[in-house]
Design a protein around this nucleic acid. Structure first.
Lengths: 384, 384
DNA sequence: CAACTTACGAAGGAGCACTTCATTAGTAGC
DNA sequence: GCTACTAATGAAGTGCTCCTTCGTAAGTTG
């Protein structure tokens, strides 16, 4: 019972215009006939629509492809470069940023280390530097950026305030969206990093096309991102996926098994300890294997809870530890098989460290699509 | 990226026709002007649409309301009685059935007891009797029934096969939808009972309008139904909500605390034991209170898992034990507050034993709406 | 260079919704 | 009982969008 608005004639045109854009996105350059066939419209009507879109700057003509029979058809493509999107991953130890076109194709990427206990100003200026760095790399002006989309640890409310963040002390109660809006003159979106990573997996990763996905963000901290019905699930208070708060789920302290393992050489910096244990387990060190077994035992409890509650199509293992997925995956699968009714596919992320940045960009793309393809949004804006 | 179909002129008309039906549903009889205003169409256009709908039998004229200024406007209403829906609750001990009109208003209801260990044939014939009983009560012919929608314990796959059912032995591996199709000459829908009850709560119960709801189906067996984004969440293998399978969630044996309580008089039939304990706790019996405390302790673990994972707007306590919600609700709220990040609203179902039947009917209504309001479904069928 | 293939562009036609205006059927006041 | 007022009705005319059809243009192939 969403809207009760009946259709005007102009609305039909609007609908067809948007359908044309939609058909041009993703698919490469298309001829008029191909477009007409895909959308079900006749060529003359399609012509009018494309003319309008060209005038508005959403679509441009590309040279016809030679070597074809008959008169060469003119081809049109979506001008993905008529605007740019920026994704930011505000992690504890690193700030990553990437620039993409409106199709979400990443053009440049940067990374800046930052201390976990750095004061707020330092952290914010690292963000600014990371963003301007990748803008420079991709020869893009900030004025051409339509949306900046950032992911960070913690619970972020609908307006972009950080409600809660265990990992970054300076983050708490911060109006992050407001701060970023002061820094950049464009639309700002904020989301939880695990949710963004989950999104990236369903858009461009191993879970491409899956509708119900549980993404495990495993590293020195545990997080989860849920895709339900093909959409990111935020929850009523934007706190969905925080299963690590539940003692019985045994997630909170699970990484300790890896970090405090006796096989880690003394003097190893704490951020590398778990990596050592996982590597040792891969090489057959029995002490390390024992630690990994205990780690996966704990990981599997919270995961089984999510699988039993949601019955997803796939569980994706991502985050820092997913580099050692070969050590973890079969063990996790084994535990889940015993605990769950139906074992979902269990796979490792293929996106690695870029998953949050990519997800932030995918989130911005989705936001753009929603703005475009919501019928009641009024006429298409001019892009130049 | 759902459909790429551009709009035809006829599609615009179709869209407006459906919008008109939509506006007439729920809202009572409407005048042409009122309809036109709601849908945004002009009166002349609306007139054509209503004429068409009258010809097809979807809408009928009602006498104009007297006592109004000016020329009395003719009024139209949706013919909710041009078809009927039947909802069935196939429980362990009872079969319930109800007949409703196309708006989901329940016209008649019946109940037939059946033994939990009854053979398949007996159970199926009880279903047939329950359905024909309420058809007789409401003076409805089976040929006027468009859809039969049934809810039952267990995991039901997409085609209506029972994949798993712990409670009803004869149920396992049954093609329930097929059996019902043999019995009744209409569309058949099958769903898990907890999910249907959850649906009823968001359509007509305490969770009306809420988008994310966890429904606890508590009684001698534990179940859960999830509403996510306003829709019933089935899961990829239709096994969502089966948290009681997880040992750590402590749901499976939770009812034992109530059933084996020392305050239950010896000789009480097992199905009444828990009711006794809950009643005794209400009266202040310390032994019973102790049992209830332990019960809610366990109930809260699995519930907290769902709340932390999904962050719902509301938790609804339903099922047999919800009659004693006054004893349970505050205790549950207290536990959840301690365990969860954000305490959702916690409320008791107001629908009682009818919740599954009502949900089955709501499910059928939703199915009908989807068929009607999916643009690509072709022209409206004639209803008479 | 001729024949063939394929796309383009203009013209004519149909369907749907909008606006406008005279008409009709009631109620309220004298 | 008559007149004035109100609000819905029905018909006519207009505009927009999309469709079909047909002649023309721009290539490739033999």
């Amino acid at each position: 019972m969403a809207d009760l608005r009946g259709g005007d004639l102009s609305r039909l045109r609007q609908l067809n215009t948007l359908t044309a854009i939609r058909a041009l996105r993703g698919a490469g350059p298309l001829t008029l006939s191909a477009l007409a066939e895909r959308t079900g419209l006749s060529r003359p009507s399609m012509k009018e629509v494309t003319d309008e879109l060209m005038a508005l700057g959403w679509v441009e003509e590309v040279p016809p492809s030679p070597g074809t029979m008959g008169r060469p058809a003119r081809r049109y493509r979506f001008r993905a470069d008529s605007g740019y999107l920026v994704g930011v991953d505000i992690g504890g130890h690193n700030i990553r940023a990437a620039v993409s076109d409106l199709d979400g194709r990443i053009l440049a990427e940067t990374r800046r280390p930052v201390a976990p206990d750095a004061p707020l100003d330092e952290r914010l200026s690292a963000i600014e530097q990371a963003v301007s760095g990748c803008l420079t790399l991709s020869h893009t002006a900030i004025s051409d950026v339509w949306t900046i989309s950032a992911g960070t640890i913690g619970v972020i409310d609908v307006e972009g305030h950080v409600v809660y963040s265990a990992a970054v002390p300076a983050w708490r109660d911060l109006d992050l969206a407001g701060k970023l809006r002061e820094m950049f003159p464009c639309q700002v979106l904020i989301e939880n990093d695990s949710r963004l990573a989950a999104m990236a997996e369903t858009r461009r990763g191993v879970a491409k096309g899956a509708k119900d996905v549980v993404f495990l963000h495993v590293g020195r901290r545990m997080g989860a991102g849920l895709i339900i019905g093909g959409k990111v699930h935020r929850g009523f208070g934007a706190a969905a996926g925080e299963i690590s708060m539940l003692e019985e789920a045994r997630w909170f302290d699970a990484p300790e098994h890896l970090q405090r393992c006796a096989s880690v050489p003394p003097g190893t910096p704490p951020e590398d300890a778990a990596g050592h244990t996982l590597a040792a387990a891969r090489d057959g060190d029995p002490v390390a294997i024992e630690a990994v077994e205990r780690y996966v035992d704990d990981l599997a409890v919270g995961t089984a809870a999510m699988v039993l509650i949601l019955d997803p199509q796939m569980v994706v293992l991502g985050g820092g530890f997913s580099r050692s997925a070969d050590v973890l995956l079969d063990r996790l699968r084994d535990r889940l098989e015993r605990r769950c009714m139906r074992l979902p596919e269990v796979r490792a992320s293929a996106l690695g460290d870029e998953c949050v940045v990519a997800g932030a960009i995918d989130y911005a793309v989705e936001h753009l699509d929603e703005q475009l393809f919501t019928p009641d949004a009024g006429p298409l804006p001019v892009t130049r």
